[in-house]
């Protein structure tokens, strides 16, 4: 499996060097910028820079800007990871190389992991870029607990990876790259607590938000950065995150096996 990860990483790296996806980097940076700007304006203009007590009760903090910047950054990260992994198979299909991958005994997880790790090279740049922009709006990370924050971030990335396996299987099944992914991404942006705590949502939407790894990832990540929390202090959200990751991973793995058979039958020269 390790060789497959390494080989796929290298292959995608070579392709990336061949034609750097400037537009997608700039696109991500811009979306991050707009999201932060939007939250900032709403906060400053509509709420006059004042929060009601419930925000503090739900988040343990009164720093809305940091809350929103972290939300936007992780949200953009989730989109990038989801797209990189879930689109990989469908782009092999379109290039006509899917059969060669399936013809080989290579590990499928190795393949997807290779795709993701290589993708993280660019996603990392986007992530840092958006955080840097955040500082201009008033992002405050003086309370950060760096070790917990890094571990949480890694867990978050793997949760998106698992979710991407499911998304990828669905996309391949329906031969669709737009409707499925855009529905999921919009939904995640609305209900996972990206720009406001999920407690503001109606009950039924709160339940829905519980199936999104992003929801728990954000709670844990903000805790480690805004409140300087140890991993144990966000024990509940971390364990939820790990549980969801495992579920998505198993479902994704199962669906991909099904999809692999189906997709190969549909290929005609």
């Amino acid at each position: 499996m390790f060789l497959t990860i390494q080989a796929t990483f290298r292959r995608n790296y070579l392709v990336m060097r061949h034609s750097l996806p400037y537009t997608s980097i700039i696109g991500s940076l811009l979306s991050g910028f707009y999201m932060i700007l939007f939250s900032y304006l709403i906060y400053k203009i509509m709420f006059n820079g004042k929060l009601d007590d419930s925000f503090i009760k739900y988040t343990g903090s009164s720093d809305y800007i940091t809350f929103a910047v972290l939300g936007s950054t992780v949200y953009i990260l989730s989109i990038s990871v989801l797209l990189i992994v879930s689109r990989s198979l469908i782009s092999e299909l379109r290039q006509g190389t899917l059969e060669t991958i399936f013809l080989s005994p290579a590990s499928r997880q190795g393949y997807f992991l290779g795709c993701m790790l290589q993708g993280l090279m660019l996603v990392g740049i986007e992530f840092i870029g958006i955080l840097v922009m955040g500082f201009f709006f008033g992002l405050d990370i003086t309370n950060i607990n760096p070790i917990s924050a890094s571990i949480t971030l890694v867990l978050i990335i793997f949760s998106f990876y698992s979710q991407a396996l499911v998304l990828g299987a669905i996309m391949v099944w329906f031969r669709d790259t737009y409707i499925t992914q855009n529905t999921l991404i919009t939904l995640m942006g609305l209900i996972s607590g990206v720009s406001f705590p999920i407690e503001y949502l109606p009950d039924w939407l709160q339940y829905l938000s519980k199936i999104m790894p992003l929801t728990f990832g954000l709670v844990a990540f903000r805790e480690t950065i805004m409140l300087g929390g140890e991993l144990v202090s966000s024990f509940e959200s971390i364990s939820y995150l790990i549980m969801l990751t495992t579920c998505y991973f198993l479902i994704g793995k199962y669906l991909l096996i099904k999809v692999e058979k189906n997709i190969l039958e549909k290929i005609t020269e």
């Binding site: 060789l3 390494q6 080989a7 292959r11 290039q95 190389t97 059969e99 060669t100 005994p105």
Partner: peptide
């Protein structure tokens, strides 16, 4: 002409497929 990565060189293609076979 299918089953090849057009953006990679011939050698890189073979390296990748070789890796997939371990």
């Amino acid at each position: 002409e299918r089953m090849l990565y057009f953006r990679l060189t011939g050698r890189q293609n073979l390296e990748y497929f070789g890796n997939l076979y371990g």
